[in-house]
C-alpha cells in the first residue's frame, strides 16, 4: 500500500475524527476562556448573618420562634413508644436574619444553634522592602516573600531586573494604599541591611530595581525556601519563588498553608508581569481559599512560561545549525 493511498483511506475512512479532534480542543479551550468570568466585586462580597434557633428539650426558645404549620408532620418523640418513626432532630426554623453582628441581640440561653458569619475583609496585596531585623513583618495579615536561590550575576542580572520591575509594577507599596496593614498581604523583597530597605522604601520605583537587585537579602530568601520545603513544597528549579504564609507566625512549621508560585520558567518581562498578576490575584483571595492544586489558569501560565523559555532556545539552536 502506497503512502498516498494510505492517507486517502485515512481521509475517507475517518474524516470526521480528523476534524473532530481539533474541533473538540477548540470547543474545550473556547468554553474555558468564556468561563473567565470577572471576580465578584467588593460590593457583591456581602457576608450574611443568620441566626438559627430551635426549640430545645430543656426549654422554649424566644418568643419570636414560629411554630411550624399544623399540617407539617412532626416526628414522634423517641420515648413515645409508637408510631414507627425513627427519632429525628427537631426541625430548624430560621426566624430572623440580621445584616450585621451589631444589630443582632444577645442570644438567648435557650438557643440551640447559632451560625454567625462575620463580614469578609478585603485583603490587599502590597509590597515592601525589608531588612533582616524587619523580617518577618509582624503587623500585616499575612506575608509572602520573593525568594531567589542566588544573587544576580552578570548573566542573570537582566532577568532579576525585569522580575523586580514586574514586582514593583504590579504590587503597590504598603504605605501607598489606604487599607490598614492588618488587611494587607505583603510580599517582601528582602534586603541585606535595614538601611538599604529603608532607602528603597522611600525611593521612586524608577531608581529602585538596580539597588534592590544588588542588595538582595539572600539569607532571608534561603530561610524562606527552607521553610517552604518543610511544608512539602518542591523548590528545585532556578527560581525565584513567591512564597506566602498565613498566618505569618506559622512560618517554619511543617503542616501550614503555604501559597507558592515558581518563576523558574520566567524568561521574559511579559511572563514576569503575568506571574505577578496571577500572584496578586491569588493572595487577595481569603487564605482559606488558597489552593496549590490544579487550576486551568495556572496550567495556561505554566505552558506559556515553558514554551517562551524553551522555544527561543530551540529557534536559536535551529539557526545555529543551519
Amino acid at each position: 500500500m502506497g503512502i498516498f493511498s494510505f492517507y486517502r483511506s485515512v481521509l475517507l475512512g475517518c474524516r470526521w475524527r480528523v476534524f473532530a479532534l481539533p474541533a473538540m480542543f477548540l470547543i474545550a479551550f473556547g468554553s474555558s476562556a468564556c468561563q473567565k468570568a470577572p471576580a465578584p466585586s467588593d460590593a457583591e462580597m456581602v457576608s450574611e448573618t443568620v441566626v438559627l434557633e430551635t426549640e430545645t428539650a430543656g426549654g422554649r426558645g424566644p418568643a419570636s420562634v414560629e411554630t411550624p404549620p399544623e399540617d407539617v408532620p412532626r416526628t414522634a418523640a423517641p420515648d413515645s413508644g409508637g408510631g414507627g418513626f425513627a427519632p429525628m432532630p427537631e426541625p430548624i426554623i430560621v426566624v430572623e436574619a440580621y445584616e450585621s453582628v451589631a444589630e443582632r441581640p444577645e442570644p438567648s440561653t435557650t438557643t440551640a444553634s447559632e451560625v454567625a458569619v462575620t463580614p469578609l475583609e478585603d485583603i490587599v496585596a502590597t509590597r515592601v522592602f525589608a531588612g533582616p531585623s524587619e523580617y518577618p513583618p509582624a503587623e500585616f495579615k499575612a506575608y509572602g516573600i520573593l525568594a531567589f536561590p542566588a544573587r544576580a550575576t552578570s548573566q542573570t542580572l537582566e532577568r532579576h531586573s525585569f522580575i523586580c520591575e514586574a514586582y514593583l509594577a504590579r504590587l503597590p507599596h504598603a504605605d501607598e494604599v489606604s487599607a490598614s496593614r492588618s488587611v494587607q498581604m505583603v510580599t517582601v523583597w528582602p534586603m541585606r541591611t535595614d538601611g538599604q530597605a529603608a532607602n528603597l522604601n522611600a525611593l521612586s520605583p524608577a531608581d529602585t530595581c538596580a539597588r534592590a537587585v544588588t542588595g538582595y537579602g539572600l539569607v532571608a530568601a534561603h530561610d524562606a525556601i527552607k521553610d517552604a520545603r518543610k511544608a512539602g513544597h518542591r523548590l528545585e528549579g532556578r527560581g525565584p519563588y513567591l512564597l506566602a504564609w498565613s498566618p505569618a507566625s506559622d512560618k517554619g512549621r511543617a503542616d501550614v498553608l503555604v501559597l507558592s508560585a515558581d518563576l523558574s520558567n520566567v524568561s521574559t518581562a511579559e511572563g514576569a508581569r503575568n506571574v505577578m498578576h496571577k500572584w496578586a490575584q491569588d493572595i487577595e483571595k481569603q487564605p482559606d481559599l488558597w489552593s496549590n492544586g490544579w487550576d486551568l489558569e495556572k496550567v495556561r501560565l505554566a505552558i506559556q512560561l515553558w514554551v517562551d523559555r524553551f522555544g527561543e532556545n530551540v529557534l536559536l539552536a535551529i539557526k545555529e545549525g543551519t
Partner: peptide, 30 residues
Amino acid sequence: LSCPAIAGALVGLALVWWVEPATKGGTTLL
C-alpha cells in the same frame, strides 16, 4: 501534508490562541 500534520497544526493554533505565548519561539514550539 498528512492528515495528522494538519490536525496537529490546528491543535497548535488552538493552543497558541489559548496560551498567548510572548515570544516567536514559543509560538513556533506550540
